[in-house]
Amino acid sequence: TETRTFTDEREARRFEQEARDNGKDVQVRESNGKFEVRVK
């Protein structure tokens, strides 16, 4: 599991989409204006 934290939602979404395109299981959590993207 890899976790990346972004402050920019667009960057978080781009990373999320890229991971999904690669067939990964992705979860995005938002807290305090930060976006935590977990990739399995």
Rank of each mutant, 00 (worst) to 15 (best):
E36W: 09
D21M: 13
E18A: 11
G33H: 03
R4K: 08
A12D: 00
E30F: 15
K40I: 14
E9I: 10
N22V: 08
A19F: 03
F6T: 00
N32P: 03
R10W: 13
D21N: 13
E11N: 05
R13P: 00
E9Y: 09
E30S: 09
K24T: 04
K40F: 15
R10N: 11
A12L: 04
V37K: 01
N22A: 15
D25P: 05
G33Y: 02
A12S: 02
F15H: 03
R10S: 12
T1W: 15
G23P: 01
R38Q: 12
K34P: 01
F6P: 00
E36Y: 14
F6W: 03
R4E: 02
R38W: 13
R38C: 14
R20E: 03
A12N: 00
T7I: 09
R14G: 05
R13L: 08
Q27P: 01
G23E: 03
F35A: 00
D21F: 10
E16Y: 10
G33D: 04
R29H: 11
E36R: 05
E36Q: 08
K40R: 13
R13Q: 07
N22S: 13
G33M: 03
N22P: 02
K24P: 01
F6G: 01
Q27R: 08
F35Q: 01
F35L: 04
E16I: 15
E30L: 12
G33A: 02
F15V: 04
F15L: 03
E11P: 01
G33V: 00
K40A: 12
S31Y: 15
E30K: 11
T7K: 07
T3A: 06
V26E: 00
N22L: 14
E2G: 06
Q17F: 06
N32C: 13
F6I: 00
E9W: 10
D21R: 14
D25K: 08
T5Y: 15
R29V: 14
E16H: 03
V39G: 02
N32F: 07
T5N: 05
F15E: 02
K24A: 11
A12H: 00
K24L: 14
R20L: 10
D25M: 11
V37F: 01
E30N: 08
D8M: 03
V37C: 03
Q27M: 12
V28M: 10
R38G: 05
E11K: 05
E30Y: 15
V26Y: 03
E30R: 10
A19S: 08
R10K: 12
T1I: 13
V26D: 01
D21Q: 13
F35K: 01
K24N: 10
N22E: 12
R20T: 05
V26P: 05
E36I: 15
E16T: 06
D25A: 09
S31I: 15
T1E: 13
N22M: 14
E11H: 05
F15Q: 01
V37N: 00
V26Q: 01
D8T: 09
F6D: 00
T5L: 12
Q27S: 13
Q27E: 15
Q17M: 09
T7D: 12
V39T: 08
K24Q: 10
N32R: 06
D21L: 13
A12V: 03
E9L: 08
E36T: 09
Q17I: 07
E18G: 05
T3K: 07
A19P: 01
F15C: 06
D8L: 04
R14Y: 06
V26S: 03
A19G: 03
F35I: 09
G33S: 03
F6E: 00
R4D: 01
R4H: 12
E11W: 04
R14N: 08
K24F: 15
T5A: 06
G33K: 03
N22K: 13
V39I: 11
E9K: 06
R20S: 04
Q17R: 11
N32I: 02
T7R: 07
V39S: 04
T5H: 09
E2I: 14
G23W: 04
F6L: 00
F35P: 00
K24M: 14
S31H: 14
E16W: 12
R38E: 13
E9A: 08
R38T: 15
T3D: 04
K40S: 15
T5W: 15
D21Y: 09
K34W: 12
T3S: 08
A12T: 01
R14V: 10
V26N: 01
E11S: 07
T3G: 05
T5C: 15
D25L: 12
V28N: 02
N32E: 09
R10T: 11
R4A: 05
E18L: 12
Q27H: 10
G23V: 02
T1Q: 10
S31N: 12
R13H: 06
R29M: 12
N32D: 11
E16Q: 07
T5V: 14
G23N: 06
F15K: 01
R4V: 09
D25T: 11
K34Y: 13
D25Y: 13
E18H: 10
R10Q: 11
E16L: 08
D25S: 11
R29Q: 10
T7P: 03
G23C: 10
R29I: 15
A19K: 05
F6A: 00
G33I: 00
T7Y: 12
F15D: 01
R4T: 07
E11A: 09
K40E: 11
T3L: 12
A19Q: 13
R13V: 05
G23A: 04
V39D: 02
N32K: 07
K40D: 10
Q17K: 12
E2L: 13
T3M: 10
R10H: 10
T7E: 10
D21E: 12
R10D: 11
Q27K: 07
K40Y: 14
R14T: 07
E36A: 04
A12G: 01
Q17L: 08
R13S: 05
A12M: 07
E30A: 10
E11Y: 04
R13N: 04
T7C: 14
V28Q: 02
K40C: 15
K34R: 12
A19W: 06
E11M: 07
Q27F: 14
E9M: 07
V26H: 00
R20W: 06
A19M: 15
K40T: 15
V39R: 02
G23S: 03
T7N: 10
E11F: 04
E18W: 15
R29D: 07
D25N: 09
Q17S: 07
A19H: 06
K24D: 06
V39L: 06
A12E: 00
Q27W: 14
R29F: 15
V28S: 04
T1D: 13
T1F: 14
R20M: 07
R10L: 11
T7L: 10
V28D: 01
R38N: 08
R20A: 04
E9F: 07
K34F: 14
F15S: 02
V37Y: 02
K34A: 09
R38Y: 14
V37H: 00
K40P: 05
G33E: 02
E36H: 10
T5D: 03
E11L: 08
E2A: 07
R38V: 15
N32V: 03
V28A: 03
E30D: 06
S31K: 13
E36N: 04
E18D: 08
V28W: 13
S31Q: 11
R13W: 06
R10E: 11
E9H: 06
E16V: 13
E18Y: 12
D8P: 00
T5S: 08
F35V: 04
E16S: 09
R20Q: 05
A12W: 03
V26I: 04
T3N: 06
E18V: 08
E18S: 09
E30Q: 11
V26G: 01
R14C: 10
V37M: 02
K34H: 10
T3Q: 06
K34T: 12
R14M: 11
N22R: 13
N22D: 09
R29S: 12
E30V: 14
D8A: 04
R20F: 05
E16P: 00
S31D: 10
Q27T: 13
D8S: 09
D21H: 10
T7V: 09
V28F: 15
T3F: 12
D21K: 14
G33P: 01
K40M: 14
D25R: 08
E11Q: 07
T3E: 05
R10G: 12
G23Q: 05
A12F: 05
T1L: 10
T3P: 05
T5G: 03
E30I: 13
V28Y: 11
F15W: 10
R13G: 03
N32Q: 08
R13D: 02
F6Q: 00
E30G: 06
R13E: 03
K40L: 14
